[in-house]
């Protein structure tokens, strides 16, 4: 167990405009486990990630890291969020903890970014920038990687490519990861466990473990898994609550 989340209440605004976003939302995350949090756009998924990343401390409840004094995070945002005025390598080097340079180099080689290490983010394609952002998140030897809809703005083919790259990276450096997405296909392709959010305010409506032999298979079986997940959810996991 590396992360325990127990959020009683998180809202935005005050007075009449107050709007609860998350309520009574609790789950935990084990080492090297990938958990997908799935919900419709605007249901508070990004808010949840921001709470876990420590970017927003205004909520009721607690988020604890058993056994970790200062958890190290890798975050993949919706956009790459690389520093445009630093080269690809500098973008990684700036956040690397001491001694991780070799591992970061290996990761860049593996993702085909090494030849572009001295390019500025504006000089490479957006796809490469996304890959670099994923590499950065895994290169810092994180205790947990947070992924905020990393493939949301991609077409189907590129999203599939993105999932493959993410999987490749995770295999190279396994770590706990929390993937927030509106797309069940992301969850089916990557997760050990799927949490379905429903609301508002959002809470966990269903928790679906993926059988070990169905985890992280090829794209076709991910499609089939996503379809069966969709069917299971429609059958009542959410509405039956």
């Amino acid at each position: 167990m590396i992360l325990e989340v127990a959020i009683r209440h998180k809202g935005f605004g005050a007075g009449k405009a107050a709007r609860p976003v998350l309520a009574d939302l609790a789950f935990s995350l084990g080492a090297n486990e990938i958990v997908a949090v799935v919900g419709p756009s605007g249901c508070g998924k990004t808010t949840l990630l921001r709470l876990i990343a420590g970017l927003d401390a205004a909520f009721e409840g607690h988020i604890t890291w058993p056994g970790l004094a200062r958890p190290r995070l890798g975050v993949v945002f919706q956009e790459p969020r690389l520093l445009p005025w630093r080269t690809l390598w500098e973008n990684l080097a700036l956040v690397l903890p001491p001694g991780q340079e070799g591992a970061a180099e290996a990761l860049l080689h593996r993702l085909g970014l090494w030849p572009h290490r001295d390019a500025y983010p504006g000089q490479i394609s957006l796809g490469m920038a996304r890959r670099a952002a994923i590499a950065r998140a895994f290169a810092v030897a994180p205790d947990l990687v947070l992924l905020d809809e990393p493939f949301a703005s991609l077409d189907a083919a590129n999203a599939a490519l993105g999932r493959a790259i993410l999987l490749e990276t995770w295999c190279a450096r396994p770590t706990a990861a929390l993937l927030v997405t509106h797309d069940l296909l992301d969850a089916a392709a990557l997760a050990d466990r799927v949490l379905i959010l429903a609301g508002p305010p959002s809470r966990i409506a269903a928790e679906i473990p993926i059988a070990p032999d169905q985890r992280r298979n090829d794209a076709a079986s991910a499609e089939r898994l996503a379809t069966s997940l969709r069917a299971a959810i429609a059958k009542g996991a959410i509405s039956g609550s």
């Binding site: 990343a53 995070l73 890798g74 975050v75 945002f77 956009e79 969020r81 700036l94 956040v95």
Partner: peptide, 15 residues
């Protein structure tokens, strides 16, 4: 967005 990136990756104040 970049400030959040710096914070979540724990870049120091000077950096």
């Amino acid at each position: 967005g970049l400030m959040e990136m710096a914070r979540s990756y724990r870049m120091g104040r000077l950096a």
